[in-house]
Computed example of a mutant assay.
Amino acid sequence: PACAVNSTLLQTYGRHALRLSRVHEGSGYRVQRALDRLERGEGIKAAVVGGSVSNGHGMSSDGVPFVYGAVKDTWHKVVSSWLNETYGPQSFVNGAMAATDSSFFRYCWAERVRLGEVAPDLVFVELDVNDVADEASRQNVEVLVRSILNLPNKPAVLFVGAFALISLRGPLLPALMANHTLKTPWFNGDSRHIATPLHKALGDMVIAFLQEQRCLLDDADITLPGDSKGLFVGADLVGEVPPVRHTRLMRDKWDATVVHPSAPPTCRIAGSTLEPASPSPNWSIYSFREVKTYLETTGADRTIDFDVNVQPGSAGEIGVGYLRSPQYHLGRAKCRVGSQEKVLDGNWTRKASLTEIDIVATGLPPGTHRLVCTTLDKGKAFRIATVVSA
């Protein structure tokens, strides 16, 4: 393929709009490593970590709102088609899951992208619709990305979305502010989820970025000599993950001895791999529109338990992912592991309905531990989506 951004993309969006879509590009080193594999015909595995946007949530063609799969040609299908057409068939896993944010994927990304089969070489992260701009979300994203980047094969991570590192906001927000009628074709009545034209635009902007990175391969030091040194980053540091968390880099005291978990998190999901340890006749599988699945019960004193494995090299944490929403008349449950316990409240004041993960126990040694959850409120439902360890 030619070393240039496709002329059709340049004519459609313009060079300046494409540049405005890049909030932060980084060094490009790991992306170029993945592209180098493609250029040599080795093939790669790409994966998506995301929410309902990546599952095509939006208004259906006949005007029904909030339909999952309403957008058939999602942004990542645009990217996948380009990879296949340019380099031949590639492995591409859509690990997106509706009603989730970074607190879910911090623990469940490996399960969703099928890490146990083959490690990904290129991971697209799309979580900016459901994440809120607070310290908890920043820390969740930090741990999520660090966990992916620390895989032995050193994959590349690209943030994609309406407000992410490859973003629609820069090039398209000024146009929307100048012409409010664009909200109809761009969002089609759903203010949280982009419609087909913006999925196409986002996919094209990712493609343009990858095409530009490919052009840098001729000059890139994909394999640096062992004695290569730069003023700041030498061969031993290029593409490596710094030990200090980026979200607190300018506030924390420097600690070169900090150790991060070496084992990927484990996650079992209701309706798939999550099974109670003991018979739980008061709990049953509940599926919402066949895209959100939970273990659900209604009423107080309903107990369910799980055996959870904590791996060597992990942080020794066990948590529960459960539905939180201002709707559905949701109640509370008390979950415990040994002497540690936490009350989880399914009701909150945020407008969104999301699976949130709360950590119940910390400092646990490797091995199998029993997690027990008991509901607290009469007449109210509680829905468990996942059980995790990290």
Rank of each mutant, 00 (worst) to 15 (best):
N150M: 12
K292M: 14
V118Q: 14
S137P: 01
A4Q: 15
Y286C: 03
Y87L: 09
S314E: 07
N150A: 08
A70D: 09
N140Y: 06
V64Q: 14
S314H: 09
T386I: 01
K200C: 01
L364W: 06
I357M: 10
S389M: 01
N140P: 00
A164W: 03
I269N: 03
G95H: 12
R30E: 01
P264D: 00
Q327E: 13
T74K: 04
T293A: 05
E356A: 11
Q32T: 11
T184L: 09
P89A: 14
L149G: 05
S91V: 13
E212F: 07
N130R: 07
V360E: 06
T223I: 08
F382Q: 06
S7L: 10
K45P: 02
S80L: 08
V238Y: 06
S102Q: 13
R332S: 13
V259C: 10
F382K: 07
V123Y: 11
V53R: 04
A133R: 12
E25Q: 11
R114E: 11
G41W: 05
V258E: 12
L172V: 13
L323Q: 07
P197R: 02
V123F: 12
Y286E: 14
A47M: 05
L274C: 04
A164Y: 02
L115H: 09
P276V: 09
A98L: 08
A277C: 04
R332K: 15
F382W: 06
G299W: 02
K154N: 14
V308S: 08
L165I: 00
P326W: 04
G161P: 09
Q213M: 15
A47E: 02
V78Q: 02
F306Y: 15
Q327I: 05
G239E: 10
H329C: 01
K292W: 07
A256W: 11
L176A: 03
V310E: 03
G26T: 00
T184P: 02
G95S: 11
G239K: 08
V93F: 06
N347T: 13
E296F: 09
L38E: 12
L274H: 05
A315V: 02
V337N: 05
G161H: 09
R268F: 07
V360P: 06
M59F: 09
G63N: 15
P89M: 08
V78D: 00
R251G: 01
D128Q: 07
L176C: 04
R146W: 08
L20E: 11
G43T: 03
G313H: 07
H193P: 08
S81H: 12
D62K: 14
L165G: 03
Y286S: 14
V258L: 15
Q139Y: 08
N153Q: 15
P185I: 07
A201L: 06
T247L: 04
V64Y: 11
V71M: 10
T273N: 00
A333V: 10
S102L: 11
A381R: 15
N55V: 06
I318T: 02
G379S: 07
A110G: 08
W75A: 02
T297P: 12
I44E: 08
P312Q: 12
E135W: 05
L330P: 03
D62G: 02
H369I: 04
A235K: 04
A136I: 02
R332G: 01
T355W: 04
F163Y: 09
W254G: 00
P242F: 09
G116D: 15
H329G: 03
A263R: 11
A220I: 04
P65F: 11
T184K: 12
Y87K: 10
G319V: 04
S102W: 03
P264L: 01
